[in-house]
Lab assay of single mutants.
Amino acid sequence: MTTFKLIINGKTLKGEITIEAVDAAEAEKIFKQYANDNGIDGEWTYDDATKTFTVTE
């Protein structure tokens, strides 16, 4: 398992979430479901060097 981080730069929600996932594809699926569940819709980026996803509304 690898640790992945999501940085949320939303209009109403900001913060960071860290999860353990098998790979970046699994982490992205989990993070996008979390964002969808919380009404966050924005532009996604991923930095493989730091294993960090960012979503900006």
Rank of each mutant, 00 (worst) to 15 (best):
I19W: 15
L13W: 06
I40D: 01
T12S: 13
F4I: 05
K11W: 07
T50M: 07
I7G: 04
A25K: 12
A24L: 06
E20G: 12
I17D: 09
K14H: 11
G15A: 05
G15H: 05
E43T: 09
K11R: 12
G42I: 00
A24M: 04
A25S: 12
N9V: 11
G15Y: 11
Q33V: 05
K32E: 12
E43A: 06
T18F: 10
T52I: 06
I7C: 02
A49P: 14
E43C: 03
K14F: 06
T52S: 05
Q33M: 07
A35T: 04
E16H: 03
E28Q: 08
E28S: 12
T56Y: 02
I40C: 01
T12K: 07
I30S: 14
L13S: 05
G10D: 06
Y46S: 14
T12C: 05
E16R: 02
D23A: 08
K51T: 10
D48A: 08
L13I: 08
L6G: 15
T52D: 14
A35P: 01
I30D: 13
D37K: 11
D41I: 14
K5L: 08
E20V: 13
V22R: 07
T52M: 12
K5F: 04
A35G: 09
E43K: 13
Y34P: 00
G42W: 04
V22N: 12
T2Q: 10
K51V: 07
L6Y: 04
D23Y: 08
I19N: 14
Y46F: 09
K51E: 13
T56Q: 12
N9P: 01
K14E: 13
G39H: 11
I17Y: 14
I19E: 09
L13N: 08
D37G: 06
E26W: 11
K11M: 03
G15L: 11
A49S: 03
F53V: 08
I7S: 11
D41K: 15
N38I: 03
A25C: 02
I8E: 13
I40S: 03
D47F: 02
K32R: 12
A24Y: 09
K51F: 10
I30R: 10
D47Q: 12
V55S: 06
T54I: 06
I7N: 12
I19K: 02
T54W: 14
D47S: 10
Q33S: 14
E28T: 09
W44A: 02
E16A: 05
D41E: 15
D23L: 04
D37W: 06
T45S: 07
V55C: 01
T18L: 05
F4H: 04
D48K: 02
K14A: 09
I30W: 15
A25V: 10
N38Y: 05
E26C: 02
T54Q: 15
I40R: 01
K5A: 11
F53A: 06
K51P: 09
A35N: 08
E57T: 03
T12M: 13
K29W: 09
T50Q: 11
F31V: 15
I7K: 06
K11T: 15
E16T: 11
T52K: 11
D47R: 11
G39S: 14
I40G: 01
D41R: 09
D23Q: 04
E20W: 10
F31W: 02
G15E: 12
D41Q: 07
L6K: 00
E57A: 06
I19C: 02
F4M: 02
F4P: 00
N9Y: 07
E28A: 07
G10M: 14
